[in-house]
Simulated assay, not measured.
Amino acid sequence: MIFKALRLNIDVRDSIFNELYPLHIQKLAQRHWTPVAVAKMAAQYLAEEPYKKVLDIGAGAGKFCLVGASCTDGIFYGVEQREALTKLSTDIAERHRIENVEFIHANIDQIDFSDYDAFYFYNSFYENIDTSCPIDELIPAHKDLFYSYTDYVKSQLEQTPVGTRVVTYWSGEDEIPGSFHLDATAYHGLLNFWRKS
C-alpha cells in the first residue's frame, strides 16, 4: 500500500513508511533517514526524465531510493558502507517489487560518479564528526574521514558534465564545487537543488 500510494502521488506519513523497518532502524529515522516529503521533492528534481540514474551518497536504510524509485521513472542506486543496511534495503525492494532500485555495499571512494546522472547527499559523512547518535558501533568514526570523503565527492562532482543535478539536505555544502549553481531551495534552506553550469 505504501509504494502504491507513492506511485499515485498520495502523501505517505513517515511514521507509516518507517514501519517497514525493524524497531532499532525506526528509532534512527528522525536523525538519519530522509523524510518522505523531502525524498519525493528531491527525487522529482533529480529524475526529471525517465531512466535518469540517481546515486544516493550514503544510502543508510535506503529510504530515499525506495521513495524515489516509487514516485519517479528514474533508476536509483544507493551506496552504503554497512552491509546489513544494504541487505535490509534490498530485501524491502524485492518484497515490494520495486525494480528500478539497486543497493551497493561499498564505500563512497570506491564509486565512479561517471556511471550516474544525478546525485543526492544527506550529509552522510557528518557521523564522523557528531557521534551523539551513532547508527551502530561497527564503523569507527573519525573526523579525518569526514574531510577525505567530502573531498572525494567534490572531486568527482567536478568531473561531471554540464547540467548535472545534485540535491543536498542538511549539508554544509563543502562537497559542492563552484561550478554548480543553486537552482532552488526548500525547507528553510535545508534542502538545496544544484545544477552544474
Score class of each variant (00 low, 15 high):
Val162Met: 11
Ala59Asp: 08
Leu88Ile: 06
Ala47Thr: 03
Asn107Asp: 12
Tyr116Val: 04
Val101Asp: 04
Phe180Leu: 02
Ala184Trp: 05
Trp194Glu: 04
Glu19Phe: 00
Leu88His: 12
Gly163Met: 01
Glu99Asn: 14
Ser148Phe: 00
Ala61Thr: 14
Lys196Ile: 02
Tyr126Ser: 10
Gln159Arg: 13
Ile139Tyr: 05
Tyr77Thr: 10
Thr168Ile: 02
Gly60Trp: 04
Lys53Leu: 07
Ala42Gly: 09
Asp130His: 09
Tyr149Lys: 10
Arg195His: 10
Val12Trp: 01
Ile2Asp: 07
Phe119Trp: 05
Gly68Ala: 08
Val167Glu: 05
Phe119Pro: 00
Tyr187His: 13
Leu28Met: 09
Arg165Asp: 07
Leu28Ser: 03
Val162Asp: 12
Gly189Thr: 10
Ile104Leu: 15
Ser132Pro: 06
Leu6Val: 14
Asp73Gly: 05
Ser89Arg: 00
Gly62Cys: 04
Phe17Val: 12
Cys133Val: 11
Tyr21Ile: 04
Lys4His: 13
Asn9Lys: 15
Leu66Arg: 03
Lys143Val: 11
Asp11Ile: 13
Pro35Trp: 04
Thr185Met: 09
Gly68Asn: 04
Leu6Ser: 06
Phe17Gly: 01
Ile104Pro: 10
Ala106Met: 09
Asn18Met: 14
Leu88Met: 11
Asn192Cys: 15
Phe76Val: 08
Val101Phe: 01
Tyr77Arg: 09
Gln156Asp: 02
Gln44Ala: 13
Lys4Ile: 15
Ser171Ile: 07
Val38Arg: 03
Tyr169Glu: 02
Phe180His: 06
Tyr152Ile: 05
Tyr21Trp: 07
Cys133His: 15
Pro140Asn: 02
Arg82Ile: 15
Asn123Cys: 04
Glu102Asp: 08
Gly62Thr: 02
Ile129Tyr: 03
Val162Tyr: 10
Thr34Glu: 06
Ala69Val: 06
Arg165Phe: 04
Pro22Arg: 13
Trp194Pro: 00
Lys52Asn: 10
Val36Asn: 09
Lys87His: 15
Gln156Val: 01
Glu127Asn: 12
Ala141Asn: 12
Val38Ile: 13
Val79Asp: 04
Ala184Tyr: 07
Gln26Phe: 00
Glu158Phe: 03
Ser171Thr: 07
Ser132Phe: 13
Arg97Ser: 11
Leu190Ala: 10
Leu66Asp: 08
Ile10Tyr: 05
Asp130Leu: 07
Arg7Leu: 02
Arg31Pro: 03
Leu85Tyr: 14
Cys71Gly: 12
Ile10Glu: 15
Asn100Phe: 00
Asp144Ser: 15
Lys87Trp: 14
Thr72Tyr: 01
Asn18Gln: 14
Thr185His: 01
Leu138Arg: 11
Lys53Trp: 05
Phe3Val: 14
Pro22Ile: 15
His96Asp: 06
